[in-house]
Design a protein around this nucleic acid. Sequence first.
RNA 1: CGGGAAGUAGCGCAGCUUGGUUAGCGCGCCUGCUUUGGGAGCAGGAGGCCGCGGGUUCGAAUCCCGCCUUCCCGACCA
Length: 467
Amino acid sequence: MAAVLTPQGEDFPRWYQDVVAKAEMADNGPARGTMVIRPYGYAIWERMQAELDVRIKATGAENAYFPLLIPLNYFSREAEHVEGFSPELAVVTHGGGEELAEALVVRPTSETVIGEFMAKWIQSHRDLPLRLNQWANVVRWEMRPRLFLRSSEFLWQEGHTAHATREDAVRYLMTIHLDVYNDFLVNVLAAPTYLGMKTPRERFAGALNTITAEGMMKDGKALQMVTSHDLGQNFARAFEVSFQSEDGQSEYCHTTSWGASTRLVGGLIMTHGDDQGLVVPPRVAPIQVVVIPVRDDDAVAAAVARIVADLAGAGVRARADQGRGSFGRRVTDWEIKGVPLRVEVGPRDLAEGVVTLVRRDTGEKITRPIEGLASAASALLEVVQADLLAAATVRRDGATRDVASVDEALEAAQEGFARLPWAAVGEAGEDRLNAEAVTVRCLTRPDGSVPESIEETGLLAIVARSY
RNA sequence: CGGGAAGUAGCGCAGCUUGGUUAGCGCGCCUGCUUUGGGAGCAGGAGGCCGCGGGUUCGAAUCCCGCCUUCCCGACCA
């Protein structure tokens, strides 16, 4: 059988593009760097949204929506923020056929507008914490766009919170990072990451601290999957977000922001995909089971319809694919799309009252009675979910080398990740790494937890090439 | 934005060096029949501002200039 996709080992970037195209995930838009997300790709994003949204709300945050267009002067109120974002702003200068008195920025992120409104809404310590989240699109004029990974316009959720104390802000930020993001990454995407803090040079513009989850792609490069920022009082000062404390003093709030974007779809593709195409973990899969008749006759069609109904009744996202092309064609199409389980139904199976279940991740074929199939499939989906996480964890650990020096880290980073004492890197070491297109992805504690401060002793640097 | 490659049918490509009538091929698509346990076969058919704009020329897919877009390597980044 001829290869449908460029093999990963031959040309990984090409494989990625082939998957995006052939799995009908997305197309390039007409303007540079823009992306048309096709129904299948969008359905995966919607699953991600649903899983994240419920976790975000469980922390006490509420959804809201702020405007796309932000007055340009908002950006100059926080010095580092304006410096960081100016190069990539899209600016609207004309409206209604006339030049605008003040240019408007198409939001690259919303700390500024949201800060402005938090200032209006917060008067008293009783108004705190204020925890907002919005699902929105943002625009950043990126130098080198790639579908999902870095598009000029992308979709995301951005959370913004204000707290009375730094302690409360940081505590909440860790809840978001661990209970929302890491839980989602591990238990839904089956994508283990390295958790840690960014070095000062990799920090978000205007933040005191940025924490990250760095995923390992199958080519050994890193991808920042999510990000959470401790903004201290920087934005609160810039936008006058203050409150009256219990003892009557006026104080600036401590704010946070945190986001997860459509980049996650790219991360999903490169974490689990193989030479046959996408591999979608069951919990994010828009279609968990596809039921394919081996032969399109009435008896088989009736059995297929019954099986799909049973699966749906058991809460499994299932669909049939019949009356379209040959059997082999249908099989490969769904393999490319990464549907976790396939049920093959043919006359020979029906005669024996069984069907064939095929796992996308391992290719394993299992014969099962039609009776009780829905519960067997549900159980198998959970096994697939767990096995994908286990396999990804083995890959991550296997491609991470503990080294002692910057030179060794540079070598290890050609293949995967390197882990070494941060004390052996430092600013100078970071310069040397960056000169070779390698970066410190994050600083982590020896036990893998997120440091509170870069001053902690014994911190480890996770070093890699990245997207 | 620097370095490299490329834009010809939905996708992948040939044609360009050496300008010349109706611009080809494979896959896909449409119709019909036969098929269907791992990308089906046969027959018939549809589909092109040759990326955009300008120039040279009797004549441009082909030569020249500008721009746009895509891909790869960097710097930037969710």
